[in-house]
Each structure stands twice: as structure tokens, then as C-alpha cells.
């Protein structure tokens, strides 16, 4: 690898974009592959698998021993609403390896006492997300039920291609939400990507159980997600 290639790789990583550095173990020659790059054949398949799993490893391809080092941004979870479910979600998300952030402008909810261990912002989502934009390695869960708080970040998450977008609320609540977001310019195809009612269907009843169902659904979306080609098609 040379310095030019290393700089390119570090730029991708700093921008929270997935990349694979391929090294030929015979001579150390390197090649950088970005998610969504067109790659065919056995190498293309190996690259696709590596992006999906996030796992680095050696591959024998056409007589060459190649090392695929996968650099995937660490997954983030942005939760809108400093509610009871979010409190239960905070320790679970941490154990599962997510970097969790809670945003809620209602200062009665967003207190350090209720959320000691996560990044907490007692501000409007539009203000927080301006400085820390959403991306394809971020999951967004909107848990307030309040359109004034939830609608903006839901639309922003769909536009940013977040790997998971979920919203709490009954089917009736969600139908009204879809109507509002459609007026805001989002398409049916985009709105179909919102997981609502939120969480895998495990008949969760308590806030803690809904947190389990939601986290499981987020993990499923992360591990089964499409490659960026599919995501950028949606964004187009």
C-alpha cells in the first residue's frame, strides 16, 4: 500500500463510508473498493459478502491470495424521544455494540438522571441533526408519537438512507403520519421503508419488551441490509 491509497482509505473512514482495502499477499499491492462499486466475478462476490458481514478475511481468487480488510463505520442508533422505551433500550443497545444517542426537546423527559449512559440532547431534532447528520450506518427510531418531534427526523432518515427507520404508533397513527410525510414530498416507496408499528412481532407488551423487539429488528436490518447500490437507487 502507498500513502495515496492510505489517504483515500482514511478519507472514506472519516466520512463514515464503508470501504474494503484489498491486499495481494504476494507483493502487497493494494486496491480500494467503495460500497456500490461495480465488481464482477468471484472477487465481486467475495466483496459483496465482506460488505454484508463486515468481516475481514483471506480469499483465494484466480490463483491469487487476497486479503479483504473491511472498514465499516460503527453502527449508530439515534432515538427520538426520551421515553420509557428509550430508557430500557439504552443499556441493551450498548451491550449490542451500538453507539446510542437520544434526542428530545422536552426537558422534563430528557434528563441526565433518566439517561446517565447515553449521549443526550434536550433539543429539537432539526438542530441536533444539522451538526451530526444521519447516514447509511445509522438506525433511527422515532418514539414520541408526537408529529412535531418525530416527523422531521423520520423524513431526514429516509433521505439519508439510514439502514433502519422505525416509528412507534398504531396503524392508525402511522397512516396519518404517512399522509403528512407524503405531503412533505416523500414517495410511497420511501415511506414503505418505515417499520411501523415498530419492532419485530413478538407480542411485546411492556416498554422493555418493545425495546427488545425494536433492537432485534434493527440488528436484522443491519445484517441483512442491501448494498449501497440499492440504497442510492432509492435516494435518486
Amino acid at each position: 500500500m502507498d500513502l495515496v491509497l492510505l489517504k483515500e482509505l482514511n478519507a472514506e473512514r472519516a466520512a463514515r463510508r464503508a470501504a474494503i482495502l484489498i491486499t495481494d499477499t504476494a507483493d502487497g499491492a493494494g486496491q480500494l473498493v467503495r460500497e456500490g462499486d461495480e465488481m464482477s466475478g468471484a472477487l465481486g462476490e467475495a466483496i459483496g459478502r465482506a460488505f454484508r458481514s463486515g468481516k475481514s478475511g483471506l480469499a483465494e481468487i484466480e490463483g491469487r491470495e487476497l486479503f479483504l480488510n473491511v472498514h465499516v463505520p460503527p453502527p449508530r442508533l439515534v432515538v427520538i424521544g426520551a421515553v420509557h422505551i428509550s430508557q430500557a433500550l439504552a443499556p441493551m443497545a450498548k451491550i449490542a455494540g451500538f453507539d446510542m444517542m437520544v434526542i428530545d426537546p422536552r426537558t422534563a423527559f430528557a434528563t441526565e438522571e433518566r439517561f446517565a449512559e447515553v449521549a443526550l440532547h434536550a433539543e429539537w431534532p432539526e438542530d441536533v441533526l444539522k451538526n451530526q447528520p444521519l447516514d447509511a450506518y445509522t438506525a433511527l427510531a422515532a418514539l414520541t408519537h408526537d408529529p412535531k418531534i418525530d416527523d422531521y427526523p423520520l423524513a431526514a432518515a429516509l433521505r439519508a438512507g439510514c439502514f433502519y427507520v422505525g416509528a412507534l404508533g398504531s396503524r392508525r397513527t402511522h397512516a396519518k403520519r404517512v399522509d403528512r410525510l407524503k405531503e412533505g414530498g416523500l414517495s410511497d416507496a420511501e415511506l414503505d421503508l418505515i417499520h411501523a408499528p415498530i419492532g419485530l412481532d413478538i407480542a411485546a407488551a411492556s416498554p422493555a419488551e418493545i425495546a427488545v423487539a425494536t433492537l432485534a429488528q434493527i440488528i436484522e436490518a443491519l445484517r441483512k441490509r442491501e448494498l449501497a447500490g440499492g440504497l442510492s437507487m432509492r435516494a435518486a
Partner: peptide, 23 residues
């Protein structure tokens, strides 16, 4: 990018490699 990101961490080996080589 915010300064707390893992990739801008000054303990990140590949960032250190870039800094050393550039220097």
C-alpha cells in the same frame, strides 16, 4: 465530522500511519 468519531481518534493505527508517513 465530530472529533469524538473513532476514525479521527489519534490512537487509530491507520491515521497514525498517515501522519507519520506524511511527516
Amino acid at each position: 465530522m465530530d472529533a469524538s468519531s473513532a476514525t479521527t481518534d489519534n490512537l487509530d493505527p491507520l491515521q497514525v500511519a498517515e501522519t507519520w508517513k506524511s511527516g
